[in-house]
Amino acid sequence: MPLRHVVAALIAASCAVWMPAASAHVVFEQKQAAAGSYFKGVLLVGHGCDGSATRAITVTIPEGVQGAHPQPKPGWQMEVTRAKLVRPYASHGKTVDEDVRTLRWFGGTLADAHFDEFRMLMKLPEQGGKLYFPILQECENGSHEWTQVPADGQGTRGLKSPAAELEVVPAGPAGHSH
């Protein structure tokens, strides 16, 4: 079998593995995280808007998530928007009454045929449950709002434009290491 056929087969196999994630739109790479933990959230953007390249990603941070901040991306700029909190919290002996509510990466270009990651660090709530992160994907031509949140007891399956979902699970028992 000629090398070009082997390479073509490997590329096709790679695309087949990626396609289910791409059809899921914008999702977290890791679907679960421990309650109360510092979590590195990696959002996967699998495609643009109807063939158009992605130019900006804006993530809305849900209530209960603390101190979110983005990881810089070469070629992209960042914008962090803060707002007053409904429920202030204590951190390092101080009361925090304002926190990050949106993270935005912009000014770069992500071709429709490619995928990329957008990373952030945040402290998760102490209680378990599902968190939904609405996302605005702006493209060269148009945009897409990944903002649908399922009704109680309903999953995201079947939603046309689901928000990125993260399941916060109870933290495991504290162990000790040697």
Rank of each mutant, 00 (worst) to 15 (best):
168 V>E: 01
28 F>H: 08
142 G>T: 13
113 A>H: 10
116 D>L: 13
112 D>Q: 12
11 I>C: 02
30 Q>C: 06
69 H>I: 04
105 W>S: 07
50 D>S: 14
163 A>K: 03
82 R>G: 00
101 R>A: 03
126 E>W: 01
24 A>L: 14
56 A>G: 09
128 G>E: 13
13 A>C: 08
117 E>S: 15
103 L>R: 05
134 P>V: 07
175 G>E: 10
116 D>Y: 00
19 M>Y: 05
59 V>L: 06
42 V>K: 08
76 W>Q: 12
3 L>V: 12
133 F>D: 05
78 M>T: 15
101 R>P: 01
174 A>S: 09
38 Y>K: 09
128 G>F: 02
58 T>P: 06
2 P>R: 05
161 S>Q: 14
62 P>R: 06
79 E>T: 05
69 H>A: 02
176 H>S: 11
174 A>F: 02
110 L>R: 11
32 Q>D: 11
42 V>P: 04
41 G>D: 06
44 L>V: 15
107 G>F: 04
51 G>W: 11
88 P>F: 01
102 T>N: 00
141 N>V: 15
113 A>M: 12
43 L>R: 04
51 G>Q: 14
94 K>G: 07
35 A>K: 04
18 W>F: 09
82 R>Q: 13
48 G>I: 14
131 L>T: 03
21 A>F: 09
115 F>W: 09
71 Q>R: 10
51 G>L: 15
37 S>L: 06
89 Y>A: 00
100 V>N: 03
156 T>C: 02
56 A>E: 13
